[in-house]
């Protein structure tokens, strides 16, 4: 198990553009919480209809003494959508809105369904604002790993909220920069992966909003990518697209939700990819206790994962 520690970024509270969209008493409460000495960088702000809001920092949840009503929640959603709710109806039905700067707002409420498909969400009950953080030193381990794989990919796994997106972002930046940059294509379905990257000197192509399966195929076939970076794979349909791309010889650096290698390898989509030898290594991610942007990588090879099946 290898530990990677980096310097903490000075992003302690909500970005200014987002503050304007939130009620003042909420932003004031967040600011006061962030000023406490034992509180680090604010990672998430959670708004709840009729219940206390909260912030998440370093994996710890702090409850705020702020309760937002229904009208306030609707007003926040309207402002997050820039006064154009219809423009975000597709992503809201999938549970999120991506704002500028890579901020992702998770949305849930009362779903309206038709033939088992969500067609709308009303009475928004929770809005979760995930704030991205720049951590340029993160991802070095993944870069070394994928370059040593000889054309096979690397899959990063962890439970939600550990930092998979952060390390993928760092790895994509490192692979696409430096003295020998690779042509990196980032399939950024939710608009989070490339947030905050200074891409002027990077050989990086971004497929923003593309469904993962289609984005991965386009990156391999038409963009001539040397590495494809993608977040949160696991769907069976995506697995077929990834296998087609693997046959083209383009390695994939991706992430998936799983608490252990055993749980990861037993997911149907991942199992299919494992049997096709798409991934040469699986990197379990965990945080060094009490420290932000400090990660442990538990690297397992294909053979070790195969023994679990």
């Amino acid at each position: 198990m290898r530990t990677v520690i980096i310097n903490r970024e000075e992003e302690r509270t909500i970005p200014a553009f987002l503050e304007k969209m939130l009620p003042f008493r909420l932003t004031d409460a967040v600011r006061k919480a962030a000023e406490q000495p034992d509180v680090g960088i604010i990672e998430e702000v959670r708004l709840r209809r009729g219940r206390c809001a909260s912030v998440t920092t370093g994996g710890r949840n702090i409850i705020l003494d702020v309760v937002l009503g229904g009208e306030e929640m609707e007003g926040v959603l309207n402002r997050l959508c820039g006064g154009s709710l219809y423009a975000f109806s597709d992503t809201i039905c999938r549970g999120y809105i991506t704002l500028s700067g890579g901020v992702r707002a998770g949305i849930c409420g009362r779903a309206a369904t038709s033939s088992g498909k969500i067609i709308g969400v009303s009475e928004v009950s929770s809005i979760v604002l995930r704030l991205p953080h720049r951590a340029p030193e993160v991802g070095e381990e993944l870069c070394r790993l994928i370059k040593s794989m000889g054309g096979r990919g690397v899959l990063v796994y962890s439970p939600p909220g550990v930092g998979k997106t952060t390390v993928l972002r760092g790895a994509a930046a490192k692979l696409a920069s430096g003295s020998c940059p690779l042509r990196v294509a980032v399939v950024d379905t939710r608009g989070e992966l490339c947030a905050g990257l200074d891409m002027a000197m990077m050989t990086i192509d971004i497929l923003s909003g593309y469904p993962r399966g289609e984005g991965i195929e386009i990156a391999a076939r038409t963009l001539g990518a040397q590495v494809i970076v993608c977040d949160e794979i696991g769907d069976t349909g995506e697995a077929e697209a990834i296998m087609r791309v693997h046959n083209c010889g383009v390695p994939l650096l991706a992430s998936a939700h799983a608490a252990s290698l055993d749980e990861l390898i037993k997911k149907p989509g991942i199992l299919t990819l494992h049997k096709s030898r798409c991934f040469g290594a699986y990197a379990g991610l965990s945080r060094v206790s009490g420290r932000l942007f400090a990660y442990n990588y538990e690297i397992s090879g294909w053979e070790a994962a195969n023994e679990l099946i």
Partner: peptide, 10 residues
Amino acid sequence: ELGTSYRDMQ
């Protein structure tokens, strides 16, 4: 009412 509902209703 502009911008306050989803596509079909809008």
